[in-house]
């Protein structure tokens, strides 16, 4: 469960994009995926802090929970760095966006891209098999 929560956590920066009045000409200029929530650095910081906090309140498995949460966040950021925007992988050393930019970033284009569907479909089948068997 911590892995699931962690893997969804970076997307909380979608709010400014959803609440905006105007759509930017270039979707790459959106706030979404540009904040600290989409950096590997944040999850490296969260890992020991979450572990210490959970241990302090006496949770068993605090290391597993903290590691799963952070791993979920890091996997999210690394997987998304394959889109045209890239992600701030070297933050705070660099604020530049890095990644292997082979997938579209724009939401509408993303939904109708065959490469994306193949990748997401593959991940869907994998998740399906893991959850069923």
């Amino acid at each position: 469960m911590a892995l699931l929560i962690g893997s969804g956590f970076p997307n909380l920066d979608v709010f400014p994009t959803l609440l905006r009045k105007k759509t930017p000409k270039d979707p790459i200029n959106e706030t979404h995926a540009s904040t600290i929530l989409h950096t590997v650095f944040l999850y490296l910081v969260i890992l020991p802090l979450l572990y210490l906090a959970l241990s302090a309140i006496g949770w068993s498995d605090s290391w597993n929970i903290a590691l799963s949460f952070s791993l979920g966040g890091v996997i999210h950021v690394l997987t998304e760095s394959f889109d045209q925007k890239g992600r701030r992988l070297l933050y705070p050393v660099s604020k530049k966006f890095y990644g292997i930019r082979v997938l579209p970033y724009d939401f509408w284009t993303y939904l109708t891209d065959k490469k994306v569907l193949a990748l997401e479909g593959g991940l869907f089948i994998l998740a399906f098999l893991l959850l069923v068997f």
């Binding site: 469960m1 929560i5 969804g8 956590f9 909380l12 979608v14 709010f15 959803l18 609440l19």
Partner: peptide, 13 residues
């Protein structure tokens, strides 16, 4: 617990 944080953006969308 997993989906609760994403219900507000989902509703807005």
């Amino acid at each position: 617990v997993v989906i609760a944080p994403f219900l507000p953006p989902f509703v807005i969308a």
